Computed example of a mutant assay.
Amino acid sequence: MNFTLHQLKVFTTIVENKSITKAASELNMTQPAASIQLKNFQDQFDIPLSEIIGRQFYVTDFGKEIHQIAEEILNKTKTIQYKTEAFKGLLSGKLKISVVSTGNYVMPYFLNGFLKKHPKVELVLDVSNKTTVIKDLEKNLVDFSLVTVSPHHLDLEELPIMDNHLVLVASKENTIISQKNKDTSIFNKIPLIFREEGSGTRHTMQLFFKQEKIAPKIMVELTSNEAIKQAVIANIGVSIVSLLSIKNELLQNDLKIIPAKGLPLKSVWKLIYLKKKTLSPVAAAFLEYVALEKENVYHNYFSWIDDIEK
């Protein structure tokens, strides 16, 4: 058996794309060249790795097993490269992080100093809804995820990095809510704009409502924090949002915080990762950096939260 790392790369890319043409494009190869590499790799085995039915590419069961082994080999070769760079004092490789949408107001400030310190690190940052973020983590597609509510079905390690404060906000044009020190009965009277089911913000809100025996009036359900902010600014309704996400809107006087008993609600932003995952040198270095620098990052970029809440 005499296959090459290049053949392994071509084979895994074809399997992941389920298409020789798409894989060739991703690898900056011609389609015939990719087909030749696949054939040369197939020639190493007496059992078919793939088959074409109609014009559709399929991977055989044997091919799926070889694909898994090929990925492990390619990952090991990357580790060799990263270890070599690290031995020379240069940290390199990919850092893959998935972040829930509101976490986009947090994560860049923890990445800033790390990436400046290690310029050869390549960042892959995906900002999505919580369902997608957890699926990426479960499939081991990322090193870390940033969430406020951890999934219970995964065996995880967690690193808390900072508090998340949720406040009730209304448009500056809203004249219905004007008095301070509202009790929780306010939520029985005002129409609320909610995040989608499954979001960390909604989860924290629902726990609060359940604890306080509140039956809120849900007016609108939106799937992003930005959409909620714009709806509140337009005076469609009020909402409970992360204080982190409305700094500019408060400064511009587009939104106002409405005091109410039990608010702000508090949760914790945390980096989570699979307990059995072997962290790459880059991922391990980032985890160590965040643990050491989280207080400095908060002081440098988020101390304005303390001023608002005084």
Results as ranks from 00 to 15, higher is better:
Lys39Leu: 12
Ser245Tyr: 01
Ile236Asn: 10
Leu123Tyr: 06
Pro160Trp: 11
Pro32Gly: 08
Thr184Gln: 11
Glu221Cys: 01
Asn235Lys: 05
Pro48Ser: 07
Leu263Gln: 09
Gly198Cys: 07
Ser199Ala: 14
Asp61Met: 06
Val147Ile: 14
Gln68Asp: 10
Ile66Met: 12
Ala33Cys: 03
Thr148Ala: 13
Ile97Trp: 05
Val99Thr: 13
Leu5Phe: 07
Val149Gln: 12
Ala285Phe: 06
Gln31Lys: 15
Lys117Gln: 15
Asn174Gly: 10
Phe286Asn: 07
Lys182Gln: 08
Ala231Asp: 12
Lys189Arg: 13
Phe302Glu: 07
Met29Ser: 09
Gly198Asn: 09
Val297Glu: 12
Glu226Leu: 14
His153Leu: 02
Leu123Asn: 00
Lys266Gly: 00
Val149Ser: 13
Leu222Asp: 03
Ile176Val: 09
Asp163Ile: 04
Gly54Asn: 10
Ile272Gln: 15
Thr4Asn: 10
Ile240Lys: 12
Val167Thr: 09
Leu141Lys: 15
Phe11Asn: 08
Leu263Phe: 11
Gly63Asp: 05
Ile218Ser: 13
Ser128Pro: 00
Asp126Ser: 08
Leu111Asp: 06
Ile176Gly: 02
His153Ala: 06
Glu288Tyr: 11
Ser25Val: 11
Ser303Phe: 07
Phe11Tyr: 15
Val59Arg: 04
Leu154His: 05
Gln68Trp: 04
Phe62Leu: 06
Val169Gln: 07
Glu309Asn: 15
Pro108Arg: 09
Leu287Lys: 14
Lys116Pro: 08
His153Met: 05
Glu85Leu: 14
Asp254Val: 01
Ile36Gly: 06
Ile190Val: 12
Val238Glu: 11
Ile80Glu: 12
Gly63Arg: 03
Asp61Ser: 14
Asp61Glu: 14
Ala34Tyr: 02
Pro216Ser: 11
Lys261Glu: 14
Glu288Lys: 15
Gln252Lys: 11
Asp306Val: 03
Thr12Cys: 09
Asn40Thr: 03
Ala285Gly: 03
Gln230Gly: 00
Leu274Trp: 02
Lys39Glu: 10
Lys116Asn: 15
Gln81Phe: 13
Lys276Pro: 00
Leu166Cys: 01
Asn188Gly: 13
Glu197Asp: 06
Lys18Val: 03
Asn2Cys: 00
His6Ala: 07
Ala34Cys: 01
Lys139Glu: 12
Ala284Ser: 14
Thr60Pro: 01
Asp306His: 02
Leu90Glu: 15
Lys189His: 10
Leu250His: 00
Val232Ser: 04
